[in-house]
């Protein structure tokens, strides 16, 4: 398997993303409160997860492009079990997959929405959670228009 690298905030015990070098345009975009993904210069489509080539037409010619940050809640689950101490005060919490209007689906949490109101099909807009000075995490909240 491809080597993966764990990342944990030692002060809080929170799991952090590992910032892979080829993903830095995405992470830098989030720091500026933008959802920046790769868009193909050949077929025009965007994709996720971040990778070396267009997953639609396999062109290697792409640009980093700011997405609308808007989309629809495509799927969700609710964690009741806390797999690590940091989660204990947070359960139950939702993990959602949002389909951006540009197509790619992203896995995040949902902000400002009671669990009972989480529904597949609801409109969502990007939110930005500053975790530390290096990392801003993409989140979503309901888009009430």
């Amino acid at each position: 398997m491809q080597k993966s690298i764990m990342s944990i905030d030692e002060a809080t015990g929170r799991y952090l993303p590992f910032l892979y070098p080829e993903e830095m345009s995405y992470w830098n975009g989030l720091k500026e409160n933008k959802v920046v993904l790769q868009r193909c210069n050949a077929c025009g489509k965007a994709w996720f997860p971040i990778g070396p080539a267009c997953m639609h037409c396999f062109s290697f010619d792409f640009k980093w492009d700011a997405m609308s940050g808007k989309g629809v809640l495509h799927n969700y689950v609710v964690y009741h079990k806390a797999w690590m101490p940091w989660m204990e005060s947070r359960v139950p919490y939702a993990v959602i997959q949002v389909e951006l209007d540009e197509g790619p689906r992203l896995t995040t949490n949902i902000l400002d929405c009671p669990l009972a109101e989480v529904k597949i099909g609801m409109r969502m807009k990007a939110a930005y959670e500053q975790v530390n000075e290096k990392i801003t995490l993409l989140q979503f909240r309901p888009d009430k228009g």
Partner: peptide, 22 residues
Amino acid sequence: NPEPWRQGLGPHGESPAYGAVS
């Protein structure tokens, strides 16, 4: 187990920073 930190998402769709584990 570092698998969930694989680039992209983990082998079961994991994304640990979001508590999307196991």
